[in-house]
């Protein structure tokens, strides 16, 4: 579904690689968590995957389409929920959804089939005709999620998706992630909430200083009597403490 091969990203004029030769293979039907301390390279990796940032070296392939050679085809397979909310806040919710659906070639019948379900799930039906700038933080997040799912993407990528969501919406989002994976599609999300990642994800990758330092199966980890939190801190906490000293 998603293949990252030796991905390297170096920012202009920087002497270090923000992402340093990482490789990952995500399978269909799994929820994959992406963890790392602040500044580890999570957002840079995600922005490379979705095509916001160009890659310095390596390649990213989504459903067999290379982001380097056929970016438009690759992007069509992705639904992305960014960590920053929509910037077109003078548009109403429905105008923004229609705009995003236009961009992903979603037919009117598909929109009519999906939107009521998604809007209802997030309790947004009554808010769709209001300008986005009147929305709360959580409502903006919900609109981003609805937009990302309008074209039923093969790969659903979420960057810190639970921030600002109320408990009900948070629950709905987690169950939708599972539903999406159960349809044979893939969910890739980054979060700092380790308890949620542990509950929701099938596998987890941990990135630190731009390198993947571990890829673990959550069930196996649990069967060994480890928690994700202790495992994560063992891998990253010791380094942080020593560098602070």
């Amino acid at each position: 579904m998603l293949t990252i091969s030796n991905l390297t990203k170096k920012y202009a004029n920087s002497t270090v690689n923000a992402v340093d030769g990482i490789s990952l293979e995500l399978k269909s039907g799994e929820i994959f968590g992406f963890l790392g301390p602040n500044g580890a390279g999570k957002s840079t990796t995600i922005k490379c995957i979705v095509g916001i940032l160009s890659v310095t070296d390596g390649d990213i392939s989504i459903c067999g389409e290379s982001m380097r050679t056929s970016p438009l085809l690759a992007k069509k397979h992705i639904g992305y929920v960014p960590d920053q909310h929509t910037v077109y806040d003078k548009l109403t919710g429905i105008e923004y959804i229609n705009f995003m659906a236009d961009m992903y070639d979603v037919s009117v019948s598909e929109r009519e089939a999906r939107l009521p379900y998604l809007a209802d799930k997030f309790n947004m039906t009554d808010a769709l005709n209001r300008p986005i700038k009147t929305y709360s933080h959580g409502m903006k997040q919900k609109i981003s999620v609805i937009c990302a799912l309008m074209h039923d993407p093969d790969l659903w990528i979420l960057d810190e998706p639970l921030t600002g969501l109320d408990p009900q919406a948070s629950f709905e989002l987690k169950s939708m992630m599972r539903e999406h994976a159960d349809k044979g599609k893939t969910v890739f999300f980054s979060s700092h909430v380790l308890e949620v990642v542990e509950k929701v994800c099938d596998r987890v990758a941990i990135i630190d200083h731009g390198k993947i330092i571990a890829v673990v199966d959550v069930k196996e980890l649990s069967s060994e009597g480890n928690t994700l939190e202790s495992y994560f801190l063992d891998l990253t906490g010791e380094k942080s403490t020593s560098s602070e000293v």
Partner: peptide, 13 residues
């Protein structure tokens, strides 16, 4: 412009 990120990820030429 602040919409650069949003526009970059769209499957639009």
């Amino acid at each position: 412009s602040k919409d650069a990120e949003l526009l970059s990820m769209l499957p639009v030429p």
